[in-house]
């Protein structure tokens, strides 16, 4: 069996990247909770990860022509930033609801740590396999 270290971490690598990026987006929302005309943004994590997973499974397409190109790996950098629907629009045009953003931020932090523990599990598994314990 050929072993590919790049793929050893599976989807969790992308997940961690997107989680970190989302934490940045959410902290931007919190930072701008008093900025006039600022529109709260977020990343649709589920959608981004579905795209990433889709790219991984179709990673090796059959080439029937020399000019065909393989689809590249999913670029998590292109994770689309979407605007949040305001629950309660404010007069100054700001759509940040600090409570909602705080909840999302905490949720995202939890999920980041979950992804980290998945990764730790993978690394420990690899270690075990390498040592032959």
């Amino acid at each position: 069996m050929r072993f590919n270290l790049d793929k050893a971490m599976g989807i969790h690598e992308t997940a961690l990247y997107v989680r970190a990026k989302r934490s940045s987006v959410l902290s931007s929302n919190l930072a701008n909770s008093d900025t006039p005309d600022y529109k709260a943004r977020d990343i649709d994590f589920k959608n981004v990860l579905r795209n990433a997973a889709g790219m991984q499974t179709t990673g090796n397409l059959k080439k029937t022509n020399a000019k065909h190109i393989q689809p590249g790996g999913f670029d998590a950098k292109s994770a689309e930033l979407l605007y949040r629907h305001p629950l309660q629009p404010s007069l100054d045009g700001n759509t940040v609801d600090a409570q909602v953003e705080k909840a999302k931020f905490a949720e995202n932090a939890m999920q980041y740590q979950t992804t980290l523990s998945f990764l730790t599990g993978r690394i420990k598994g690899l270690n075990k396999a390498l040592r032959g314990e």
Binding site: A20, S24, S28, N32
Partner: peptide, 14 residues
Amino acid sequence: MSLLSAFDVSGTAL
């Protein structure tokens, strides 16, 4: 790294 920029963002807010 995205987390580092989250740090900076919160810093500007402070």
